[in-house]
Design a protein around this nucleic acid. Structure first.
Lengths: 202, 202
DNA sequence: TGTTTGACTAATTCTTTTAAATATTCAATG
DNA sequence: CATTGAATATTTAAAAGAATTAGTCAAACA
């Protein structure tokens, strides 16, 4: 029956997610994913055209999970600063949990497949829109004064993402100090965002 | 005489600078640098212990040039925002002029020699101190309210540097659109810095 | 007809080897 | 002390081959 097929697709996604998140894209083989489920390798190719598509699907899957999570947490929040803080916390939570999954995305900057590029861009645009929406709320309530929402949101997003990049870049050496590093980055992001938002205040 | 020796050292630095800035560290050979000056290769090793040291010396040389330049331009400026704008403009000017020189610095994040690391850290700390000083001026004049100068300056610095990184990362594809890209980054940096400074205003 | 598989092929990565380019040293010279 | 040509040591590049892994397909199955 059809439901079984969908369930299997999900099972593959989950299994691949575990592998990718733990070992990264290149250190995970299709055979391993299949074995974890006692499926044949060929079956993976029945559900996904190739490894890259599977990876993209997993990434998309996790990103959606994260988006829903954030949307949930954000619902009751009216205050601009609080909203941004929550987003930052959630995001860092996911980056920590699925580090190797995103790591490929960051480092592959070159030769990203078209599909992967789409997933990344799409995610970026959703984040962008979310911040735009938060800023607009702040504008409506009279809390903020923003002349160009699109641009201002992009500035904030770039600053925050860049901050993460630059620190991770600096600390490529110490492989497994990650936990504390991530917390430090998060703290910086929060402080920086607070100042930024204050800079938009009426 | 001694002066001649120093002059030769400078000549080597200048020649190396030209090569490194144009072709990058790895695509420049000691032989080429020597040939440009009609020196023997061995002479370079009389003045510099190895290629890496020469590269570091060149980087240091350019950074100092830039620092003096910035210091000069900054002298008559009292206004915080104006000061940061000038720094950003100058910095981008140098990055554009010596792109390949810095590029190695950015991309080599891994396996940077200890010496190179020192030069980079040192430059970073000087930038940091400069921003601290600018913020303190703003604090004294009553323009700004900053509770932790060190940290606030670092936040601004990281945001600005990160912004550059993230955009360059995004656009690794289009090799020679640099000119416009750099201008776009500069514009973003300026706008972002303005908001940040406003966020510190009394 | 839609799913599943084992066995097969193709592509990619990893190793090893060798050759070439380049960095680095050094004894000798003015 | 400054300088060099020639020699050596290291690093990179290319080629070849082996091994791993991605991806295909005809046949089986339900």
């Amino acid at each position: 029956m059809l439901k079984s097929a969908d369930e299997k697709r999900i099972k593959i996604l989950e299994s691949a997610k575990r592998r990718f998140a733990h070992y990264g894209m290149s250190k995970t083989t299709m055979a391993e994913i299949a074995n974890d489920l006692s499926f044949s390798k060929a079956l993976l190719y029945y559900y996904f055209p190739d490894k890259n598509s599977l990876y993209c699907a997993v990434l998309d899957y996790v990103i959606k999970e994260q988006e829903e999570d954030i949307l949930q947490v954000l619902k009751p929040v009216k205050n601009t600063e609080k909203a941004i803080m929550l987003i930052l916390e959630k995001r860092m939570e996911y980056i920590k949990r699925y580090y190797n999954l995103f790591e490929y995305t960051f480092n592959a900057s070159k030769d990203v497949s078209e599909d992967l590029g789409k997933v990344i861009i799409c995610s970026f645009e959703k984040q962008h829109k979310q911040i735009i929406s938060i800023l607009k709320n702040g504008g409506k309530s009279g809390e903020l004064v923003v002349d160009n929402y699109e641009e201002t949101a992009r500035l904030l997003l770039f600053s925050l993402m860049g901050m993460r990049l630059i620190v991770i870049k600096d600390l490529k050496h110490s492989f497994f100090s990650t936990k504390e590093e991530f917390d430090a980055i998060l703290e910086m992001q929060k402080k920086m965002a607070k100042i930024f938002i204050k800079g938009l205040c009426a």
